[in-house]
């Protein structure tokens, strides 16, 4: 309960600060650079949850604990959600700064492939009836998908040049305004907190549903 209240307050502070405290970066039309405080955390949470999902899948394959699979499934689902949000907010930003919602910028290309990969992950889950087999296959697919991600993030964007703002908004860049940096890190923290809360909620739902599953009928035939 305390966690929820703290999270809400913190999130409210961050949103207010993002509008009033931090200063807009130069080089972008009007106040649009404030998107940094909302769009980038989505992408960060999406990446984080895919990482968690992959690790949890590996743990499940090694130890066969159902809990690890719940974590993998929940993280993949949330990652998918945040990935969609990052895509939508990114394309609105693209509209205001580059003039079009979609122009197959390398970043946009890779995020679409990422969305497809995780769409396919859910397809694996829905295609296999036997719960144990479903978990193993989903885990295997998750790891395979994760292996191809570096190809997307590092290989594809370098072939063509990107319009995606990098240096002006990169927190590691020394030119970043200290106020902006403070709010940005606070925002990352706030969205990560939100993500953890949603993740735990989802895992609890899956656990309860798992307890309800009839034990004796759990091995349904898949190809008879």
């Amino acid at each position: 309960m305390i966690y929820k209240i703290l999270l809400t307050v913190w999130m409210a502070i961050i949103i207010v600060a993002a509008f009033l405290y931090a200063e807009a970066a130069t080089g972008f039309p009007g106040e649009t650079s404030r998107i940094l405080f909302f769009h980038v955390p989505q992408a960060w949470v999406a990446t984080l949850s895919f990482l968690i999902s992959m690790i949890a899948s590996a743990v499940y394959l090694a130890k066969r604990r159902v809990k690890a699979d719940y974590l993998a499934q929940s993280a993949a689902e949330l990652g998918f959600l945040f990935c969609i949000l990052a895509t939508i907010t990114g394309s609105i930003f693209a509209k205001t700064t580059w003039g079009a919602f979609w122009n197959w910028d390398p970043r946009q290309t890779s995020i679409v492939i990422l969305l497809m990969i995780y769409g396919a992950y859910f397809a694996v889950r829905s295609a296999v009836n036997d719960p144990d087999r479903r978990r193993v296959f989903a885990g295997v697919y998750s790891i395979l998908a994760f292996v191809t991600v570096p190809f997307l993030v590092f290989v594809v964007p370098r072939i063509t040049t990107s319009l995606h703002p990098e240096n002006t908004m990169n927190p590691a860049h020394p030119g970043m305004d200290p106020k902006t940096l403070k709010v940005f890190l606070g925002s990352l923290f706030a969205y990560t907190g939100l993500f953890v809360w949603m993740l735990r909620l989802k895992i609890r739902v899956l656990t309860i549903e798992g307890l309800r599953e009839p034990k004796f009928m759990s091995r349904k035939p898949d190809n008879e």
Partner: peptide, 24 residues
């Protein structure tokens, strides 16, 4: 081969993994 719905699933699962390769 071990899933219950086979038809379109193979392409649906393979293509996302193959896309980076195809683009390259």
């Amino acid at each position: 081969a071990r899933a219950s719905t086979r038809g379109a699933l193979f392409s649906a699962l393979s293509l996302p993994l193959l896309l980076p390769l195809m683009i390259t």
